[in-house]
Design a protein around this nucleic acid. Sequence first.
DNA 1: CAGTGGTCTAGACCACGCG
DNA 2: GCGTGGTCTAGACCACTGT
Lengths: 247, 247
Amino acid sequence: MTGTVPSRHQDIADDLRSQITTGRIQPGERLPSEADLADRYKVSTVTLRRALAVLQGEGLVEKIHGKGNFVRRPHRKIMYVGGWGTLDPWTAAEAALRVTVRSTTVQAYGHLTTLLNVPVGSPLAEFSCASHAGESPHGLARIYIPRDLAPVGDLDDASSCWEAATRFAVLSPAPAAVRETACARAPTPDEASALRIGHAAPVLGITRVATDVTGRIVEAALLVFPGDRVDAVFATHHMTQERQIQA
Amino acid sequence: MTGTVPSRHQDIADDLRSQITTGRIQPGERLPSEADLADRYKVSTVTLRRALAVLQGEGLVEKIHGKGNFVRRPHRKIMYVGGWGTLDPWTAAEAALRVTVRSTTVQAYGHLTTLLNVPVGSPLAEFSCASHAGESPHGLARIYIPRDLAPVGDLDDASSCWEAATRFAVLSPAPAAVRETACARAPTPDEASALRIGHAAPVLGITRVATDVTGRIVEAALLVFPGDRVDAVFATHHMTQERQIQA
DNA sequence: CAGTGGTCTAGACCACGCG
DNA sequence: GCGTGGTCTAGACCACTGT
C-alpha cells in the first residue's frame, strides 16, 4: 500500500475534476473566481491555485489572466501519423484547421547544421507554421529545407506558403526515408504562450528528418503539439513475408 | 519585444541552471538547503521552491525528501526505437540496465478490452516491469498478453520473467504489425514516485499494440519514460522503388 | 534528536481585461 | 475603476532521513 498523503490541493483538484468530467461544469464555462473557490473550500488562495495548476497540467482548465479559469473543450485527441504520410495526419479535424505560415531564408547554425547535415551558414528556407483548430492553437512547426531544394523566387508567395502548409501535414514528394524522434518536455515560454497552455503542461515534440534516395536530407521539421491534444501514431507493417529490414 | 515579466523565481532558476550547466555545481552534488538558498537569494522559501520546481521540471534537479536537492546526472538521452525491434532499443545503456518484473493474471477490464480487442473478463497475463539504469529508474512497462498466448504454467518462473524483460525491449517473435502511439503527459502520482520525478515533469507514454498475421492482437504494452531521459525514434524506409502506398 | 523537504496560511502588491 | 489572475512574503506545522 503506497501511503497516499492526503494533500488539500489534490483533494480540491479531484473534486473540481469530477465536477468537470461529469458535466456539472460545462466546457467553455468559467469557474468561480479563485477567491470564491478558496473561500468555498476554506483554503488559502495559494492552495487553491495549486489545485488549479494540477487541472491545468491535465489540460482540463485554461487560465486567462484578468478573465478567469475556463473549462477547456473536451479532448478530441488528434492523431499525428508518422511515416511518409499515406494517411492524412489531420483526418479528424482536417476541415476545421487553419494554418498560418511565415517563411524566410536563414543560414544554418547550431544544431540545424547537424540535423540537416549541411555546413554552417548554408542557406535554408525556413517555414514557421501555426495551425489553429477554431479558436485554440493546436500545433507549431518549423520546417527547414535546403534553399536549393525549395521553390525558387519569393518564399512568401502563395504557392510556397501553400506548399509549406501542406508539408506541415503530409510529405508530398515521398522521400526515401523518414526518421521521426518524439519527445515529451515542458514547453518553452514562447511555445507556452503560442499554444495557450501553461508552463507546466507537457508538449509532444517531434523532429522529422526526411531523406531522398541518395541519402541527402531534404527536410527537417520541428513540430510541437500540446500533449493533451495530440497523440502520435506510428505503424509498422510487416509487409508480406520476404521483407525484414536489417538482418 | 515580448515583455519579459520579471519573476524572481525564474531569475533564481536561471542562476542555478547556469551554475549547474557550467559545472560549478557537479552532477550528484547536493545543493545548499532550501532555507540557505532562500536566505542567500533573499526570498521566501516558497519562492525558492518554485525556482527549484522549474529545474526539477527540466530534469536538472532531483529532490529527495529529508535529504536535499541533488543535481541529476547529465541527460544521456536513451532512444526507444519503434517498429518491430530490429535494433536493440536500449543500445546506449544496454549493459547497465536492470529490469525487475512482477507478473500476474488479470481479467480484462475497461480500456484494456478495447486495446486488446477481447471481451470483458478475458484472462490476460500481466507483466509489470521497471527498468533501472544504475541508481535511477528509467522506464516502466505494463505488458498484457492474452493468457492462452502466454507461457503456460507459473508466470513468475524464471523463463517467463526473462521473456517479459526481453519483451520490454524487443519484440522477439516479430509480429505482423506494430502500432505505437506516443503521447506527452504529466505522470500519475504512482509513476512520479516510481520514476523519482516531480509531478510536473512530463513523461513520454507509448502504447504499443502488436498484431499477428491473422489480425489478432498478441500484445499490448503500456510504456512510460521520463521525458528528459528518453526519446522515441521511428524510422520509415521507403523500400526499393515499386512500393508507394496510395497514389 | 536535528536537519531536511512538503504543505499550508493570511495578507500584500502587481499586471491584465473590460466596461 | 473594478474584478480577475500572478507573484511574493513570513511564518507555522507536518513528514521523512539520518544519527
